[in-house]
């Protein structure tokens, strides 16, 4: 990695100076690094791929303002970290909106039903929090009405299988917490 780091710095400096011949080598060096980094930082493979793509595109978009005195690899990883955080925040918002939808079901009914729905939503949230983040994301994607919430990179059959396993684990968690389903 030490040799790569020096190479990345030299190539990034060339890129900042407008040397188009450095575009390919910079991409070849940084794309696998960013993919690995984002894949590890995010639970879902599809999210990791998305974050890596956004990070590499942003890196190239900002390459003209790269300061050659900085470390190119650290700069690239900082952009990737930011992208991973953005994707996590988006996933969190999707989860919240799906749970809010459960609470809204009771909004038209009486107070007792609303209270029960709120308690149910809170219990579901707690049970989901105990799941592996990937399982929780699968369940939330299945609950969401937004088709974009489902990972497009995953085949429908694979998604169904994943959902089946995630629901089985959710059932176990629910049983251990509340005794019945």
């Amino acid at each position: 990695m030490a040799a790569n780091r020096a190479e990345v710095n030299a190539l990034m400096a060339r890129l900042a100076d407008g040397d188009r011949s450095a575009v390919g080598p910079v991409f070849d060096l940084l794309w696998p690094v960013l993919r690995r980094f984002c894949g590890r930082a995010l639970a879902s493979d599809a999210d990791g791929e998305d974050a890596a793509q956004e990070a590499i595109v942003k890196l190239f978009a900002r390459a003209a303002s790269f300061d050659p005195g900085r470390d190119g690899l650290a700069w690239a990883l900082a952009i990737a970290t930011w992208e991973c955080r953005s994707i996590r925040r988006r996933a969190g918002r999707r989860r919240e909106s799906a749970l809010e939808a459960v609470a809204e079901l009771a909004a038209d009914g009486d107070t007792e039903a609303a209270l029960a729905a709120r308690e149910l939503a809170a219990a579901a949230r707690e049970a989901l929090a105990e799941l592996d983040p990937r399982d929780a994301a699968t369940v939330m994607a299945a609950l969401s009405e937004d088709p974009a919430a489902r990972p497009a990179a995953v085949a429908p059959a694979t998604f169904r299988k994943r959902l089946e396993r995630a629901l089985a684990r959710l059932r176990n968690v629910w049983r251990s917490r509340h005794g019945a389903i």
């Binding site: 794309w31 595109v57 942003k58 978009a61 390459a63």
Partner: peptide, 14 residues
């Protein structure tokens, strides 16, 4: 496709 997007982003950035 990602490489092409990156190259386009580079030109836009410049």
């Amino acid at each position: 496709s990602v490489r092409r997007r990156a190259a386009r982003a580079y030109e836009r950035g410049r």
